[in-house]
Design a protein around this nucleic acid. Sequence first.
DNA 1: GGTATTTGATATTAGTTTAGTATCAAATCT
DNA 2: AGATTTGATACTAAACTAATATCAAATACC
Lengths: 143, 143
Amino acid sequence: MKLLTKHTDYAVRALMALAGQKLYIPAKEISEKQGIPHQFLRGLLQQMVHHGLVESKLGPTGGVKMIVEADTVKLLDLVEIFQEGIEFAECLFRDKVCQNRPTCVLRTELLRIEKIVNDELSNITIQTLIDRLDENICPKGLI
Amino acid sequence: MKLLTKHTDYAVRALMALAGQKLYIPAKEISEKQGIPHQFLRGLLQQMVHHGLVESKLGPTGGVKMIVEADTVKLLDLVEIFQEGIEFAECLFRDKVCQNRPTCVLRTELLRIEKIVNDELSNITIQTLIDRLDENICPKGLI
DNA sequence: GGTATTTGATATTAGTTTAGTATCAAATCT
DNA sequence: AGATTTGATACTAAACTAATATCAAATACC
């Protein structure tokens, strides 16, 4: 189980590439540099246009440009756009009298964890990640 | 995205039903009481037998019996059995020189969150959940 | 011994989600 | 005019999750 889908993962990387750029950058350039499938990335960028994170321009010299500040884009925002948020637990008995106590007890715990994760995802922004880039390339033990 | 699959969810509920019982209990009885598909539950119970959480006995008067203490079975144990653990992030560049810094930075954050979740799942045992049953039936606002 | 009950073991199917691909039209720069 | 880029949409493939179906072997009980 992955916390982030490829959608979110790629979107994060695309925004990191776009942050601070003043010119429009073609999707193709990003997809090549970051190793993201081109058409797949285009779909993601379009969604970000719809959500007001990014602006696009057609034709040559066209491409996409970030129109929000990197420190205002939370990881949670992207998770909500591309994964419809995090939902660790679902109530199996909505609209019914709750007759399943074990499930509900478990659900309470899962909701608690879900909140922790959501808080963490709120505290990470695109800018946070960019700042980390300067600190180290690849953390020890990961490769 | 759910943190627990049905496998884990059902397994938890089955263990809660088995905890403290001295006699063998047929899978069918549990599946009916807890509303878990019979054959599906049988598969889960068999896995728990293989992992030494549960003991089985054939024939009439047979069934399954828990052979570990409820306070020693962590939610994380079940997640590891039925979901092969939690893995929020995967390195896309194993065995290669790490050329993808944004992904690695993101991965570091995800690993940190993953650890938090694993710790939380370690702190919840079957006994924890059973204890909660006595406190309240269904938390306010959930239904 | 015969029958009902229960688990062991395994194979198969169906549904959902995730990931990726393909096309064609419209705009725009040179 | 022609190359480039996004807009919009439809489609395919792979992986994962959930569930179902069988048949054999062991056991209790009459």
